[in-house]
Every structure is written in structure tokens, then in C-alpha cells.
Design a protein around this nucleic acid. Structure first.
Length: 354
DNA sequence: GCCATTTGACCTGC
DNA sequence: GCAGGTCAAATGGC
């Protein structure tokens, strides 16, 4: 096992101890508790991901880096870097955010960052910022007239494979739910395989330009297992307005421990650590739009309505877990599409709040 | 009416 | 030319 992995486990243990020590003081502060738990989950999930990948990833496939949300968890990222972790394996989610400033992040820019390093970028992926993203199909159709669609066969870049057992009960043709919603867009008989390969993409592909895909195939050599190849990470959970924010994989595994032992390899996605996907508690928030203050209950896992701001308006609010800026989206009428932390270190390294 | 699935046709890398 | 991957019309369920 790599030293990095062991150090990460030790750091996770330290975070748990910190939580234990702080518990009497923060027991009645759900936001802080949630934040503590998120950090712990992020560290241990990244560790598990790393271990599983070392054990199960097909040869030649690159090891998954640790993904941490440097906007929601800047203190965590800083701590890990301070511990001597290589910046190259601690991939902050805002890596390469060149040109994106507070309140101006677009789905396109984010997704292009995530697929950077591969040339598997579709016409839709390359849509310049500023173009409304709702009608992706129209853009694709229009673009395909002028440019050839670029397709690249799956060579293992930006993809990973997991083995999932065929359910003993229920429909054996459908692999077990992995926490995300998928839409089947094709099925193909593969040469030399007894079983057809199913092609799935994220249900939220159009609305949120989520590039995630997976291929599901029963193994000839072991029909009791599916081989599921995931390609690209989900971006749909980045939106605070996503209609069905899936629960993070880790809690699913914990809550369904009768299944936990049968899943090998990488999960479908690193843990969802952004605020949009955290515990669905309600908290009152105050924010101002153009100098006018509003107060509203915000479901951390759901929508937040914009009372009167126009498209493109920047709104900010303070919460117990930090200051945030919303960019009023042109895609979802009257809702805020992107949540961007207002950069202020609430918990400086070794701060008293922990 | 909306959304998911099916499936033959088409596109593209090898 | 072949085979994997994707598209899109048809169809069905809710």
C-alpha cells in the first residue's frame, strides 16, 4: 500500500478524533457537524477509492487521484498539502479554473476542465460560455452540419471499470442501482461476447450537460458479474437545481451494508461533497440582491428560488458554513444555477472552530 | 404529453 | 471493411 494511502487513513482518524473532542461544543450546530462529517467522508472515501483502484482497476488504467472540493473544503485541501501530499494527486475540483471568477462559472467551463487531458470532447462540450445550455440537441444538430462529430473509442482514458454481481433476485438484465439515474441509449452485440453491451448516459445530460456514461456488459467468463465501464464524471450534482440529486455513494454503502461487500473497484463517482449534495437540512439564510436583502429557507440539497433577480444577477448570502455567491442562471428560470463559495477562510488551519 | 427503452441505421476509429 | 459507439424514429408506460 502506498504511503499516501496510509497517511490519508491516519489523517481521517485524526479528523474523527477532532470531531470527538469538539462534539460537546458543536452538538447543537448541525451545519458544523455536517461539515465535519463531510470532511471525514471525503478523506475515507478517497482512501477507499484509491485502495479499490489499486486492487481492481484494469492494468494500464491510471490510478484515480483524490478529488477534494477546494471551494467547500479549502481547509482540508490545505491540510493535506501541508502533510506532504503531492498536489498532482490531490485534484481540487476547481483545477484549471482559468478565466472563471466568482459567480461566473459555467457548466461548460467546468465540464471542459474535467475532460481536459482527453480529446473526447463532443461538439456539445465545446459550447462557448454564455450560450444557453438547455437546447443541447439543437446545438449538436446545428454544429454537426458544420463540423464532423468527433468520436473516440474507449481506450481507457478518463474511464474506469468495476465488476458488479448480477442481482440474485429481480431483473438480472439490469445492473444494481449505483445511485445515479441513467438513460439507456443503445445496445449492441459485441463480437465474441454472448451477452449484448448496454450503453447508458446520465439522465441529466441535456439539462445539465452531464457527460457521464456507462457501458454494462455481462461477462462471458463469469455471467454472475456485470462489467460496468464508467466514462466521465457526473457534473449534474454541481447544480443546486438538479432535480434528483443522488445520495453520495458512501452513505449508500453504509446504509446497505448487506451489499457493501459485493461491490468492487471504483464507485461510479467520488463522493459528492459540494453543498448542493450534502445533507438535506433546511436552514434560514439571508442574502442580498443588488443591495436588497432577502431571507429564505434553503434546502441544502435542493432548490433555492430567486425572488426577483434578473438573469445573470449575482447574489450572495452568509451561512454558518461560509459565504456564498449565486449566479442567477439563464437556464433555470428564476433559480440559481451555480453555487460558488465566496472565498473566505472560515476555519483557518488549526482554528478554534474545530 | 413526457420520458424511457428498443432497435436499425449511421458514423468513425482502427 | 469491420466493429464499437451513437443517433433518432418508433413504441410503450405512466
Amino acid at each position: 500500500m502506498e504511503d499516501d494511502t496510509i497517511n490519508l487513513i491516519l489523517h481521517g482518524c485524526k479528523l474523527v478524533k477532532d470531531l470527538e473532542v469538539s462534539l460537546p461544543n458543536i452538538a447543537n450546530q448541525p451545519a458544523l457537524l455536517s461539515k465535519f462529517c463531510e470532511d471525514i467522508i471525503a478523506v475515507f472515501f478517497a482512501t477507499k477509492q484509491r485502495i479499490d483502484c489499486q486492487s481492481h482497476c484494469s492494468s494500464g488504467r491510471r490510478l484515480s487521484p483524490y478529488f477534494f472540493d477546494d471551494q467547500q473544503q479549502p481547509h482540508l485541501l490545505k491540510q493535506l498539502l501541508g502533510m506532504g501530499f503531492s498536489p498532482s494527486i490531490l485534484i481540487p475540483q476547481s483545477t484549471n479554473m482559468a478565466g472563471t471568477s466568482r459567480g461566473s462559472v459555467t457548466a461548460g467551463s467546468w465540464m471542459e476542465r474535467r475532460v481536459a487531458g482527453t480529446d473526447d470532447v463532443t461538439v456539445a462540450d465545446a459550447t462557448p460560455p454564455g450560450i444557453p445550455t438547455a437546447d443541447v440537441s439543437a446545438q449538436e444538430r446545428a454544429s454537426s452540419i458544420h463540423s464532423k462529430r468527433h468520436r473516440k473509442r474507449n481506450t481507457g482514458e478518463d474511464s474506469w471499470t468495476v465488476k458488479i454481481p448480477v442481482p440474485k433476485i429481480g431483473n438480472v438484465e439490469i445492473p444494481p442501482d449505483d445511485g445515479y439515474t441513467w438513460r439507456k441509449y443503445g445496445q449492441k452485440d459485441i463480437l465474441g461476447s454472448k451477452f449484448p453491451r448496454g450503453y447508458y448516459r446520465c439522465t441529466h445530460r441535456k439539462l445539465y450537460r452531464c457527460p457521464a456514461k456507462k457501458q454494462v456488459q455481462r461477462l462471458d467468463s463469469d455471467p454472475s458479474n456485470f462489467e460496468v465501464t464508467y466514462r466521465h464524471l457526473h457534473t449534474c450534482h454541481m447544480s443546486s437545481t438538479a432535480p434528483s440529486v443522488p445520495s453520495p455513494s458512501l452513505p449508500r454503502l453504509i446504509s446497505q451494508d448487506n451489499k457493501a461487500h459485493v461491490i468492487s473497484g471504483l464507485p461510479s463517482q467520488p463522493p459528492l461533497t459540494s453543498m448542493a449534495s450534502s445533507s438535506s437540512m433546511w436552514m434560514p439564510i439571508g442574502f442580498d440582491i443588488g443591495g436588497t436583502s432577502f431571507t429564505q429557507s434553503m434546502n441544502a440539497g435542493g432548490d433555492i428560488a430567486c425572488p426577483s433577480a434578473g438573469i445573470g444577477a449575482e447574489c450572495r448570502f452568509s451561512s454558518p458554513v461560509g459565504d456564498f455567491v449565486f449566479n442567477h442562471s439563464a437556464v433555470q428560470n428564476n433559480t440559481f444555477e451555480f453555487v460558488v463559495p465566496y472565498m473566505e477562510e472560515r476555519w483557518p488551519e488549526g482554528g478554534e472552530q474545530k
